[in-house]
Design a binder for these strands. Sequence first.
DNA 1: TATAACCCAACAACGTGTTGTGCTATAATG
DNA 2: CATTATAGCACAACACGTTGTTGGGTTATA
Lengths: 203, 203
Amino acid sequence: MARKQPEVTAETRQNIIDAYWQLIMSDTVNKITVKMIAERAGYNRGTFYSYFLDIEDLQSQIEDELLPSEESFEKLRKATISKNSKEILDVFMQIEDSVGIKLSFLLGPSGSLSFQCKFKESLKSLIIKYLPLDLNVDDKTIDYKTEMLCGLFYETINYWYRSGNKVFKNEEMISLMMDTIFYGVVGYKFHKENWEELHGNNK
Amino acid sequence: MARKQPEVTAETRQNIIDAYWQLIMSDTVNKITVKMIAERAGYNRGTFYSYFLDIEDLQSQIEDELLPSEESFEKLRKATISKNSKEILDVFMQIEDSVGIKLSFLLGPSGSLSFQCKFKESLKSLIIKYLPLDLNVDDKTIDYKTEMLCGLFYETINYWYRSGNKVFKNEEMISLMMDTIFYGVVGYKFHKENWEELHGNNK
DNA sequence: TATAACCCAACAACGTGTTGTGCTATAATG
DNA sequence: CATTATAGCACAACACGTTGTTGGGTTATA
């Protein structure tokens, strides 16, 4: 538990956080200790406990700052209404240098499962809140559809970060995602030859 | 390191593994130690090290046994060719009681990130190997499309396990997934009103 | 009676979280 | 201006738990 509560500084706190980021993002380290964080930050080990309960506490604090915000999706809602596609991009591709690097790490294989779950949950609740539903759709399937829509957003964001923004331009990426959402994963021909014959062209 | 290599039994090994499963699946425990595993299995702590290098070694061994197998997708390939939809279901929904429970746990929020990555990778390589591509599609986008197809498979499997197979029947689930893959995430009406006007109905 | 499978006790090494004490630079006070 | 005071941190030590290893002992089976 934090020992002396008032005797803390925002600067020292950030120094400890930065040291933690350096350690988890250097793939040479797998098991991180409080001692390592304190040494990297240039503080005594006891100082760590003046700022955080333990490593898990530190981790959850820095993760919460990286979740998709309410404001960003408010921008999306206005963008879909005002038909400004440029603003749609900005929401998901606001890779503000250091922030984008941290995000792509946490979302990756060496990242944090808890963060990925929280990220998906935030995405889902924001999608439900801001993206209007077609009321003609079966209530039974809408939950599944929402899950898939969220999944496509999530995977696209992940792909965007993994590809290092090199493969597609912003406009191409968002266009490709929208096409996939609205028209399906075209490109695999087995459905035309088999699937429609299986169930009949009932769609 | 395992001390006495020949002096081991498959039965004892399985008992230790079962004890580990009991511990990680009981949400009352968050930090698992070798001592806890040994006590739960009914063995001395030293016996654990005769069978596994450490907990991480145990974990990776049991995870590899749960990855989607080559045979299961061979069944899928034959199914798509022979147009037997029943066999397609069996591939992804062969929830053999205990196996399904373990799978859904590892794929969940309290599961294993390393397993989820290995699971996705296996899924991806199998999809690339067995699902035929439409050669008319742009090479640049096919990587992204494959990623999204894999994501939809993954999310559907996850949804299937999370819902406890209660919401949809097997046939309904696979039909819903196929529809989503081929025709997109219908149900959200914002695309008809906004998206097509944004980019023109160029698809 | 020999061996396989396991138990038991002990070990050094390391990480954890806490505590008491002392240092030093900056700020407040008479 | 000299002096106290305090905020921020260093340092050392503590009890405790986990780790991986080792040497020796036990028991049932063949």
